[in-house]
């Protein structure tokens, strides 16, 4: 499947936040990220999905070198770059860029768009004067903004424009991997659509790779090539997007998909765990992290033993004690609608 070395390889990553917010924190010593491994190739999009607190952002920050890694390795083109960002070579920093969820918080309100774009252009590409200005105009063109935006301040931009400036700033370093941490969630659907089109075009033209963190499965479904589903800092399912979004599902993936609101409204199938609620995460440290909430729990084995990764086709892996074939037959009925319900109603009226 993958002959050459992947662009990014994350191997058995463990991150533990020390302390926590105080003595009240019930799970102080639970790792935020536990034994996470994945690879991203050039021109590929890997999506990380999961609920808040599942460790998605921590993984991005570990790849960027912004949090302390307890164990495991981050490799870029096979070279070990584990460790804080200040220990990395300028070239490594250049290759990995991070775009944050909230452009309001990541753009300096006192800097013009030109100043914002100037920093990476001068640091990573050593541009000055007219060359720098020209490069900044080209970056704006990449994100479909014209040169008149150079003089504007962040406050004079709409949310979508700000997010595009944040993306342009990340692109200024000519990265190979863009870490996108919920970059669409603050945007309107129409702006989302144009940012998605932009990400696709950049990937097509430059072979840019994305680690795309999102809670929006409807976006992930059509943007990502591969998906890793995280629960409490551990990957419970990973594979090509078309495999992860159809049975057999990990019971947690199944629950997430069932909760996605659909435009036809009426269907709104209850997520299997609707009655379970947010229960305890796991009953024993050595068991399955999802055991406490799992609607398909089979018995004491779920609490006692960490489930194995069942390897299915094309790198699709599900971490569950229930055999994949059995999961598939349990899930084939309710989870995926036979036909797009929205299209059906449109044509019937």
């Amino acid at each position: 499947m993958r002959p050459e070395r992947p662009l990014l390889a994350v191997d058995d990553l463990v991150v533990v936040y020390r302390g926590g917010p105080g003595w009240l924190w019930p799970i102080r010593h639970a790792p935020a990220v536990n034994g996470v491994s994945f690879e991203i190739s050039s021109g590929e999009t890997l999506a990380l999905v999961g609920e808040s607190g599942s460790g998605k952002s921590t993984i991005a920050r570990a790849v960027e070198g912004l949090v302390r890694i307890c164990s495991g390795a981050v490799r870029l083109h096979g070279e070990n770059v584990t460790g804080p960002v200040r220990g990395r070579t300028p070239d490594t920093k250049r290759r990995i860029q991070l775009v944050f969820q909230n452009p309001d918080g990541s753009l300096n309100p006192r800097h013009s768009v030109l100043t914002i774009l100037s920093r990476p252009l001068s640091i990573f590409r050593r541009l000055r004067g007219a060359h720098l200005r020209q490069a900044a105009i080209e970056l704006l063109a990449d994100v479909q903004l014209d040169a008149s935006y150079l003089a504007r301040m962040p406050a004079q931009l709409s949310g979508g424009e700000r997010q595009r400036v944040a993306i342009a700033r990340a692109l200024a370093a000519e990265p190979e991997l863009l870490l996108c941490d919920e970059i669409l969630s603050a945007l309107d659907v129409s702006v989302q659509a144009s940012v998605i089109a932009l990400l696709r075009r950049l990937q097509r033209e430059r072979g840019l790779a994305y680690l795309f963190i999102s809670h929006d499965l409807s976006v992930v479904r059509w943007l990502a090539h591969r998906v890793a589903v995280l629960f409490r800092g551990e990957i419970c399912e990973q594979g090509r997007v078309e495999d992860v979004f159809q049975p057999p599902f990990h019971p947690y993936t199944e629950m997430l998909l069932a909760a996605v609101p659909r435009l036809d409204g009426g269907s709104m199938a209850p997520p299997p765990s609707a009655t379970t609620g947010a229960g305890p995460e796991r009953t024993r440290a050595e068991g399955c992290p999802f055991a406490g909430r799992c609607p398909r729990r089979i018995g004491p084995i779920c609490d006692a033993e960490g489930p194995p990764f069942q390897q299915l086709r094309d790198g699709h892996a599900i971490r569950c004690h229930i055999p994949a074939g059995e999961l598939a037959s349990l899930q084939t009925e309710p989870a995926m609608p036979a036909a797009p319900a929205f299209a059906a109603t449109t044509s019937s009226v």
């Binding site: 659907v189 129409s190 059509w222 998909l257 996605v260 609608p337 797009p340 929205f342």
Partner: peptide, 19 residues
């Protein structure tokens, strides 16, 4: 048409242009 959906891929040309 711009609402992302699990069931149908997004339109190649965003339906809502400009801002």
């Amino acid at each position: 048409a711009a609402v992302p959906s699990l069931d149908r891929p997004p339109e190649a040309e965003p339906a809502l242009k400009g801002s």
